[in-house]
Design a protein around this nucleic acid. Structure first.
Lengths: 151, 151
DNA sequence: TTCAGTGCAAAAACTTTGCAGGAGG
DNA sequence: CCTCCTGCAAAGTTTTTGCACTGAA
């Protein structure tokens, strides 16, 4: 079978070579599974999906590889307050944040350049070197077709 | 012993009466323990602390009560990406967000009015009704006295 | 050949739930 | 008295760890 995401594979290979990480087929299986996943997923979600697709992969490898993929920015880690780590592809995607409907669970993306400006300003004032930020808005989507609480 | 935080007790009582919640001594023990806690804490941290202080309180009661205290805004729930819920007192405190040093774990507070403006703007554009947001900056504090990675 | 990576299972960390007894309103 | 609340223990969920074997470099 042809490589599914050649540019992502190349980027991952380069990252692995740069650190003291070996290039293994399992890691690229996890990369493919992650990039194919629609929307956000937890590590265990991906484990279940790959198992059901016939991959003989272990949880340890999934967790290990997702961490590496987040480090080299092929995936983004997200935390929506439910005490589990969510991942999503950030390969060839614009930076964005999330608006979570607390009634129906719908997750909507948005972008606003003002956030990065605030991050830079705060870090500058307090003497920090920023490595990232997490910004999530919670609210009600008022969408009568999907959301139980809409009027 | 005198009531430790009379105004917080009153606010909690009022909240409990408003909903279908009973006023129990255990709930006020948890309130006191939470307000006395320095900085951020997890539910289990508070359980351990109260147990060691001689309170015969159960985890179920701690979790239940912390949720109620968050609902009536005596506590604030925080999520710093370590897959556990952190709480902190928000009684008589200014609204603020956090800057977490990814090297030494130090948590610094800051305030910036621009964030709420962005929240309002985004919700207005997308038709949501905001109920809150979570904003955390990650970075390195560059503090040579506390942080291992400082130059 | 070397040692990081792997699968597996067990353990750990945090949170929720079931149940029987107790107490608030 | 009627429920809600409590303590306890068990179970659930997500993540990490120990171990022996494998395979990349």
């Amino acid at each position: 079978m042809a490589v599914k995401f050649p540019k992502a594979h190349d980027k991952f290979k380069e990252y692995l070579r740069g650190g003291n990480h070996r290039i293994t087929p399992e890691r690229f299986d996890v990369l493919d599974g992650a990039l194919e996943y629609k929307g956000h997923f937890g590590a265990d979600d991906l484990y279940v999906k790959m198992k059901s697709n016939g991959f003989n992969v272990s949880r340890a490898t999934i967790y290990n590889t997702l961490e590496l993929l987040a480090q080299c920015e092929l995936l983004a880690k997200r935390h929506f307050g439910d005490n589990k780590t969510h991942y999503e592809s950030s390969f060839n995607r614009k930076n964005h944040d999330h608006l979570v409907c607390t009634n129906c669970g719908k997750i909507q993306e948005f972008s606003d350049d003002g956030i990065q400006e605030i991050v830079d300003k705060v870090c500058n004032e307090l003497g920090y070197t920023s490595t990232g930020y997490s910004f999530t808005i919670f609210g009600s989507c008022n969408d009568s077709s999907t959301c139980s609480s809409a009027k």
